[in-house]
């Protein structure tokens, strides 16, 4: 063994890249993407900001957003004018439950993005994927190899 490393994600990316990860993570967690968002009345809502994630503006549109839903809970991911990635959770549940759902899904979005980026960049640097599977507690396990002369 050479080294064991723990890395914390820091994401700066364009909206289309993160939107693809939002869709992938949401579908894998049983959500569906909403094309038309109806405003619910009298529901609890909570806003979460991801400190380690910014979305780079690539156009003048400041209203990039995507809403997903599952069992009456709607989660909206968006990029604000400052480029911060925001998560808003709405539904007829207690605030703690909404917060847990939002944090879990936002984490999965980051996981999906990091997985895609690691696979792509390591392949660009000559690594081949030997193994890829799901581990305990929804972790993604990936083994890559590079052949050196």
């Amino acid at each position: 063994m050479g080294s064991t490393i723990v890395l914390v994600p820091l994401i700066i990316t364009a909206w289309p890249m993160i939107a693809a990860s939002v869709t992938a993570a949401a579908v894998s967690a049983g959500f569906h993407v909403m094309k038309v968002v109806k405003k619910q009345k009298k529901t609890e809502s909570i806003d979460l900001t991801m400190d380690n994630m910014d979305v780079v503006a690539e156009s003048l549109a400041h209203d990039d957003k995507i809403t997903v839903a599952r069992e009456g809970v709607e989660v909206t991911f968006s990029r604000d004018a400052q480029g911060h990635f925001k998560t808003c959770v709405e539904g007829n549940l207690a605030r703690d439950e909404l917060k847990k759902i939002g944090e879990d899904l936002a984490g999965r979005v980051i996981q999906s993005y990091i997985h895609k980026r690691l696979s792509q960049e390591l392949q660009n640097h000559g690594f081949v994927t030997l193994e890829e599977d799901k581990g305990p507690e929804d972790t993604i396990r990936l083994t890559v190899r590079r052949y050196e002369e």
């Binding site: 050479g2 723990v6 390591l122 581990g135």
Partner: peptide
């Protein structure tokens, strides 16, 4: 070889 584990909050554990 690099063995990578991505947790469900995006944290990465890697063994080289």
């Amino acid at each position: 070889d690099i063995e990578i584990e991505i947790t469900k909050d995006g944290k990465v554990h890697a063994t080289i």
